[in-house]
Amino acid sequence: MMLNCKNATKLMSQAQDRPLFLKERISLRFHLMMCSGCNNYNQQMFLIRKACRHMGGRSKE
């Protein structure tokens, strides 16, 4: 089934907390190829994590 943006963001958020299943990774990758909004969301998830670590004295991790 095609992933919509809402479910794509759910997977991108969960990817920060657990390993995604292969099926989830494939459908997410496919969605990201076509959706710039979600692409930006994805990059920002990683940036938020880095910013949190930076603030908590763990910038080198």
Partner: peptide
């Protein structure tokens, strides 16, 4: 944040933030 089809609403769709490495520092 999304329309009835689960797509981004235009006004809250994420835009690019530029260079990520430079952003958080």
């Amino acid at each position: 944040l999304f329309d009835e089809n689960g797509r981004w609403r235009k006004d809250v769709q994420p835009s690019s933030w530029g260079q990520p490495e430079e952003t958080y520092s």
